[in-house]
Amino acid sequence: MLIANGTVIAVCDGEKLSLYRNQGDESAPELVPLAVEAVETQNKSSGMRHRSTAANPDARQLEEDSFAAGVAGILSDMFLANEFERLVVIAAPRTLGELRKRYHSQMLPAIQAEIAKDLTGATVPTLLATLEAERG
């Protein structure tokens, strides 16, 4: 996958968010870590009085979904503040599903790719290899 200069790459799961910006060019990307603000979680208590079923997720799943909502909020705010024009999202599959529900509609055209893999904690070379494999 070709990643234009300035593209932001978000890597997350239900507990951790890492952000990078490509400071290189498309043929030689150079991912530089960005500072990540604290992720605001919301609606932690909704559904907590119910038994855990597919329709009523357990407390841990609610935490992960709330985290994903907070990540979508951060990314949307960054986009609306003109902090990026292009975005690549690499997220655990369930987290990616939650993110998709919560992106700001104006940000949708900026999303260049979504990769459903849990690569939180991965090294930059691993991320670059994954992005290169997606080019394929």
Rank of each mutant, 00 (worst) to 15 (best):
M1L: 05
L2T: 15
I3R: 11
I3P: 12
A4H: 11
T7M: 05
T7W: 04
G14P: 02
K16W: 04
K16I: 06
N22Q: 09
D25M: 07
P33C: 09
V36T: 11
V39D: 01
T41W: 02
G47I: 08
T53R: 12
A54R: 06
N56T: 10
N56R: 10
P57E: 07
P57M: 03
A59H: 12
A59N: 09
R60M: 14
Q61H: 12
S66C: 07
A68D: 13
G70S: 09
V71M: 12
I74C: 06
S76E: 10
S76A: 11
A81D: 15
F84A: 01
E85P: 01
E85I: 04
L87E: 02
A91H: 03
P93S: 01
T95M: 00
E98S: 13
K101C: 08
H104G: 09
H104Y: 10
Q106H: 15
P109I: 03
I111Y: 09
Q112N: 15
A113E: 03
A116C: 00
A116F: 02
L119Y: 05
T123V: 03
T126I: 08
L128G: 05
A129R: 13
A129W: 01
T130Q: 05
L131K: 05
E132R: 15
E132P: 01
A133P: 07
